[in-house]
Amino acid sequence: MPLTLEYAFTITVDLGEPREVGTTYAGFRRVVPIAGGTVDGPALSGEVLPGGADWNLVRADGAVHVWARYEIRSSEGAVVTVINEGLADPAGPPEGAADRACPTHPVFEAPQGGPTWLNTAFFVGRLCLPTAPGGPVAVEVHQVLVH
């Protein structure tokens, strides 16, 4: 059975000032607060709520492990928890790439009465890093469909 991707929505996240924890046994840890943002797309719209963070880790091999947890509020008012995990290639983007991005796997926890289809669907994301210092990040969320 072939798999296809269907674009669902984009989460644009405004970031706060990173807190550098420093080098730990696992690598170099920093915590990046989530200050807000938007959700926009054909399957879901709303806002990113302030709070939560990305607890990212630069591993010894240079790869960056992204692990973010935060909440979004749908345009209908449901508060949905997001956990988004990804791994950026230590080699960085290919020569001549217009942007910096890495694959992610967002998982959602929606309450009863909310967009509960998020709870059982499988998603992949494309985390687009800021083009300027202090700029927002965007996660393009695609639903994986099995035919």
Rank of each mutant, 00 (worst) to 15 (best):
M1D: 01
L3Q: 10
L3V: 13
L3I: 12
F9Q: 05
I11Q: 12
T12R: 13
T12E: 14
L15R: 14
E17T: 15
P18L: 06
P18A: 11
V21C: 00
G22N: 06
G22I: 12
T23H: 08
T23K: 10
T23I: 10
T23M: 07
T23W: 05
T23Y: 04
T24E: 13
R30C: 01
V31W: 05
V32K: 08
P33Y: 10
P33N: 08
I34V: 15
I34R: 02
A35N: 05
A35S: 14
A35M: 15
G36Q: 09
G37W: 02
T38Y: 07
V39K: 02
V39P: 02
D40T: 14
G41D: 11
G41L: 10
G41C: 09
P42L: 03
A43F: 04
L44F: 09
L44Q: 07
S45V: 06
E47T: 15
E47S: 14
E47P: 00
E47V: 15
V48N: 02
V48R: 00
V48I: 13
P50F: 03
P50E: 09
G51A: 03
G52W: 10
D54F: 08
D54S: 04
D54E: 15
N56G: 00
N56T: 10
N56D: 15
L57R: 08
R59P: 01
R59I: 02
R59H: 09
A60Y: 09
A60R: 13
D61Y: 07
G62L: 10
H65D: 11
H65V: 13
V66F: 15
V66Q: 11
W67A: 14
W67Y: 11
A68S: 15
A68H: 03
A68Q: 06
R69I: 12
Y70S: 09
E71G: 06
R73G: 01
R73C: 04
S74Q: 09
S75F: 00
S75A: 15
E76N: 00
G77T: 11
A78P: 04
A78D: 10
A78L: 12
V79Q: 03
V80M: 08
V82S: 05
N84G: 06
E85K: 10
E85A: 13
L87E: 07
A88F: 07
P90L: 02
A91W: 05
P93F: 06
P94N: 01
E95N: 00
D99S: 11
C102S: 11
P103V: 07
T104P: 12
T104F: 11
F108D: 04
E109K: 07
P111R: 08
Q112K: 12
G113Y: 12
G113N: 10
G113V: 11
W117S: 04
N119H: 10
N119C: 09
A121P: 04
A121T: 09
A121I: 06
F122I: 14
F122W: 08
F123A: 04
G125N: 07
L127P: 01
L127C: 02
C128I: 15
L129G: 00
P133H: 07
P133A: 13
G134N: 03
P136K: 02
P136L: 04
V141R: 01
V141E: 04
H142P: 01
V144C: 07
V144R: 01
L145H: 04
L145D: 00
V146E: 14
V146I: 07
